[in-house]
Design a protein around this nucleic acid. Structure first.
Length: 209
DNA sequence: TGTCCGATTGGT
DNA sequence: CCAATCGGACAG
């Protein structure tokens, strides 16, 4: 494994920010293309960066694992129907937050779930937020990295191209992408085994799955 | 209002 | 393998 890339220049990350129209493509395309990108979060007293190493796509109306299956609309999921580029977070199992990027066009509620990151910057803050010191357990799960980053309901419906939270194009795309079925969706029937989970082969921060 | 359940995690 | 834990979805 190469040593994690050191990122210290926020300007460089901002220059390569993924723009809103990037997220108008379909979920599986986005889920694969943001592998190796940086997820950047900054505010007045913290600067957190992780490399995206695992994602899943949710295909919306036609996908019985999606919250928007059958064009379902509820108070929780209504931002899924917005144009691509907004954030969909939801509370799960009484204590966790799952983080999705809504993609595709308006009224086509596709989503990309970010399942795991490789921690790069702000590791001490992540350890504090998680209450965990082991590097490999900081961000290797969909609700672990959100806890490390302090993600919660405040981000629901916000843009993924904001000043405080954005995705930045990663430099190396020479890895191999593994396709598997998605994790934790046994309630689904039709799409249960579709190969809509994607991760960087050999990366040590992949969730257990 | 009441019941059921989860795109997970952490401990046994 | 299994319990934790509580907001959201949905039925009545």
């Amino acid at each position: 494994m190469p040593e994690p890339l050191r990122i210290s220049k926020i300007k460089h990350l901002e220059k390569n920010k993924r723009r809103r129209d990037f997220f108008t493509k379909d979920a599986s395309t986005i889920a694969k293309r943001i592998l190796g990108d940086y997820l950047v979060m900054k505010n007045k007293d913290s600067f957190l960066v992780g490399r995206i190493v695992e994602t899943e796509s949710y295909l919306g109306i036609i996908d019985d694992a999606s919250h928007a299956w059958g064009r379902k609309i509820t108070e929780r999921n209504r931002v899924m129907y917005a144009p691509g580029g907004v954030i969909y977070v939801y509370f799960i199992y009484g204590k966790y937050w799952c983080f999705n990027i809504i993609v595709s066009e308006k009224e086509n509620p596709q989503a990309v779930l970010i399942r795991a990151l490789e921690p790069l910057e702000g590791i001490e803050i992540m350890k504090k937020n998680r209450g965990v010191s082991e590097l490999k357990k900081l961000t290797n799960g969909p609700c672990r990295w959100t806890q490390a980053f302090g993600i919660d309901k405040r981000f629901l419906g916000k843009s993924i191209e904001s000043r405080d939270l954005f995705i930045s194009l990663g430099p190396y795309k020479s890895f191999e992408i593994v396709h598997t079925k998605r994790i934790g969706i046994d309630y689904a029937t039709h799409s249960k085994d579709s190969p809509l989970r994607f991760y960087i082969r050999g990366n040590e921060f992949i969730s257990k799955g």
